[in-house]
Design a protein around this nucleic acid. Structure first.
Length: 780
DNA sequence: GCACGATTTATACCA
DNA sequence: ACTGGTATAAATCGTGCG
């Protein structure tokens, strides 16, 4: 049989005592096909120091045989670009790799071990140059003894090749919402049965299983049967990892078989803490929400809202029990669960393309993509790139941290400027890495000779020119692919399916390219090399300085700049500068923005300005910070708006005074006084009794659950003790206890003054009550 | 023992 | 659980005072 198949998921398994790979696929016409490949080998590599690899094999093979080693052979590999002879050690099964490498460590025959931490399914994808969530050209045959899977045809793989096809087959997708209710606090699987499971599928079918209170056995059985009959490729949820663990616990108690895998296996918790289901992809959208620092509560509602989805008021979780116990309200709860299932499916429509593209490009299965960090995504890509040039994959070891200098930030002079253009280097770091061939395997260590190489401008780090490294290759592919995709996008109908796929792809290509610099400087990276990250930053500073120098020569005035941008007063020579950048620096730059009027304080990374269309844009100032009270942010924005639009200082001052008066009179909603801060460690781990920590402790004392990463909202109450002790969780405070004077002195005045001090206004001018003071300002 | 400046701790932002 | 650069607030430390 010859077919085009789309790879959904893969895993390793055993067939007649031999370790094999299972590939769960869907064909062009929607058939579900399981491919079994029994031709795979488990192996890793070892290097010898000064001795000969032949000798090392001869000396160790007889003993290693006892540990499951089938074969040892010499092969040509590279370590950081240097060709070496490595010994490939083929082992009968995955579980013996650790035993063998452990034994090798003791033998001392070999110097170093490589790739003993690569799982078989990953190894398979790398070797075959294929990725999940993409098309394969497969030749396969029928064979006896293959596993029997319902709804699946099973074949043995003869050959398998990657296919460059952008389309996505029709997948069976199932969004689920699991309703769990606890009488007091969060539900516990030990005694709280699952109340309902709502399902919404890609066919538009809605299904709900409910439990009338005593036992959820029937609910769980019905749910499992539904999965068996619908046979989804993808199961979606929000917090579904927790849901599965809950269901696993429940199924044990009510003696249910949770056979939801395509081989009827139970869900299993994988090493990374996520739940996997054989043959299906289980995606927890909660992991995507956790990546968004804008969110405070990480509820599904808040997450959906951040994606632009409008949802009405919901029943809060702490009222679930009340609703459930009231027969007239019970149905509202079930209705809400239904809506959540639909909402999760709607989110897939927004996020799905992105997840598939990320999977296709990194080689990680869809269910790993959201759980993997940015660094691991980049690394997954790099490992494949490394294989293609015979580069051995370094072990994942935490390296000691050595700091280095980053981007150049210019000191702005406080004041208001007009007609300011922002010149931006596009993808500066990726382009620098390409231009100077910066990669861990092109780096020349000190002491080694190099005839012709790139030398970094400050530290003098050298990079060879005659060999393309893993970073260079990765960046070149990503940037070229992105260019091609963006070109194709131009001739694609906006809003069409193709457009969505291409757009998701170009976004993912950019994200991956931009991650690589950070990856290089991450001490946990397999390909960490401080010199690489350091050199990139050096050439970045060099590029900005050279551009500034040229701008000055051309008579252009520079106001500010940060890392890869320069703020310059618009002038006719700007075009000449752009041309110079393109021709002399061979870098890409563009005029990203134009401010009609822009205000700088004396601080770096903080400014606000009016764009051509009149939009007010604020960067870095309190307005855009989450840890200032809303009233202060609102006031600062007002002041900024007045100043940039009218330049009328007195108008701004009287505006602020009005807010101050209102605040002192308590005419401000408590909501606008809440200060939010995120917990970065458990409350008891803090060295300093900061306001938000004390507020968190108070919540904890009252039975709230505070996790690392949660945002704590507090307000400052009346009293004479230090601020921290007067900080109380906003949920527990009444308006009469608020210390309004704190908000005037520590929030309103500093926020407003940040802008107004540029115009010579001081604290006195804002706090003085008299009308005389207002009139006299600026007139002496 | 207290006031006050210096230093440390913590957070959130920019690129 | 990708980097460094930066501003800022509040807690805490350290020192001079007497």
């Amino acid at each position: 049989m010859k077919a085009r198949l789309w790879l959904i998921d893969l895993n390793s398994d055993f067939l007649l005592g031999k370790e094999v790979v299972h590939l769960w696929c869907v064909s062009e016409n929607g058939e579900r096909i399981l491919l079994v490949d029994d031709s795979v080998e488990n192996f890793f590599f070892a290097t010898v120091g000064n001795g000969s690899p032949e000798e090392a094999i001869k000396a160790s093979f007889p003993e290693l045989k006892k540990y499951g080693v089938l074969r040892m052979e010499i092969c040509d590999k590279r370590i950081l670009g240097k060709p070496i002879k490595a010994v490939k050690i083929v082992v009968d099964k995955s579980e013996n790799i650790e035993r063998v490498s452990g034994r090798l460590d003791k033998l001392k025959t070999f110097q170093k071990i490589y790739e003993d931490d690569i799982r078989l399914s990953t190894r398979y994808l790398i070797e075959k140059r294929i990725t999940p969530s993409s098309w394969l050209e497969v030749e396969a045959e029928e064979s006896p003894n293959l596993p029997n899977i319902p709804n699946f045809k099973t074949f043995k793989v003869k050959s398998i090749e990657p296919l460059e096809l952008g389309s996505i087959p029709n997948l069976r997708i199932m969004a689920i919402h699991v309703l769990k209710v606890g009488e007091k606090g969060s539900p516990k699987p030990e005694y709280d049965p699952v109340v309902a499971i709502s399902i919404f599928t890609s066919e538009g079918e809605f299904k709900q299983f409910t439990c009338d209170g005593r036992s959820d056995k029937k609910l769980i059985d019905d749910f499992v049967n539904y999965i068996k009959s619908y046979d989804p490729d993808i199961i979606l949820g929000y917090g579904i990892t927790e849901d599965w663990n809950y269901l696993i616990e429940r199924s044990k108690r009510v003696d249910s078989m949770l056979e939801v895998g395509r081989n009827y296996a139970k869900p299993h918790t994988s090493v990374f803490g996520h739940v996997s289901i054989t043959g299906r992809i289980c995606i927890d959208l909660f992991h995507d929400a956790r990546d968004n620092p804008q969110l405070t509560e990480y509820t599904l509602d808040e997450y959906a809202w951040s994606l632009g989805l409008k949802i009405g008021p919901q029943i809060p979780e702490h009222k679930y029990y009340e609703y459930l116990s009231d027969s007239s309200k019970k149905n509202m709860l079930f209705k809400q669960s239904e809506e959540y299932a639909r909402l999760i499916y709607t989110i897939w429509n927004i996020m799905g393309d992105f997840i598939i593209q990320l999977s296709q490009l990194t080689g990680l299965p869809m269910d790993h993509v959201l759980t993997a960090s940015a660094g691991h995504r980049a690394e997954s890509y790099l490992m494949r790139e490394a294989y293609s040039i015979g580069e051995l994959i370094p072990p994942r070891i935490e390296k000691p941290y050595v700091s280095y200098a980053g981007g150049l930030v210019l000191q702005p002079q406080k004041g208001v400027y007009e007609n300011v253009s922002i010149l931006d280097f596009s993808s500066m770091y990726p382009n620098i890495m390409l231009k100077y061939n910066i990669s861990p395997d092109t780096y020349i260590p000190s002491g080694e000779q190099c005839e012709d190489c790139f030398v970094s401008p400050e530290s003098g780090h050298r990079f060879r020119k005659d060999y393309r490294g893993v970073y260079t290759r990765m960046l070149q592919s990503l940037l070229e692919a992105r260019k091609a995709v963006r070109e194709k996008l131009k001739s694609t109908k906006e809003g069409s399916l193709d457009y969505r796929i291409l757009n998701a792809r170009q976004k993912v290509l950019k994200i991956l390219a931009n991650t690589l610099y950070g990856y290089a400087g991450w001490t946990g990276a397999r390909w960490y090399l401080r010199e690489v990250a350091e050199s990139v930053a050096e050439w970045g500073r060099y590029t900005i300085r050279a551009t500034m120098e040229k701008a000055r020569q051309l008579g252009l005035r520079i106001i500010y700049g940060d890392t890869d941008s320069i703020f310059v007063i618009d002038g006719e020579k700007l075009g000449e500068l752009m041309k110079w950048i393109e021709e002399e620096l061979a870098m890409e730059a563009r005029i990203d923005k134009f401010y009609k009027r822009i205000l700088f304080t004396e601080a770096k990374k903080r400014y606000g300005g009016l764009l051509e269309d009149g939009t007010l844009e604020v960067v870095g100032l309190e307005v855009v910070r989450g840890d200032w009270a809303e009233i202060a942010k609102e006031t600062q924005l007002g002041v900024l708006k007045i100043m940039l639009e009218t330049m009328d200082v007195n108008k701004a001052i009287s505006y602020v005074r009005n807010v101050i008066t209102d605040t002192r009179n308590g005419k401000v909603d408590l909501e606008k006084l809440v200060i939010w801060k995120r917990m970065t460690k458990p409350p008891e781990a803090y060295e300093v009794r900061a306001p938000h920590v004390l507020a968190a402790l108070e919540l904890l004392k009252r039975g709230w659950r505070i996790d690392v990463g949660d945002k704590v909202g507090y307000v400052i109450t009346k009293g004479t003790s230090r601020i921290g002790e007067r900080a109380k969780p906003y949920q527990l405070v009444e308006s009469k206890d608020i210390d309004y004077e704190y908000y005037v002195r520590n929030q309103l005045v500093p926020a407003a003054l940040r802008i107004l001090e540029v115009f010579g206004v001081d604290e006195q001018a804002l706090l003085k009550e008299s009308r005389k003071g207002l009139m006299s300002f600026g007139t002496g």
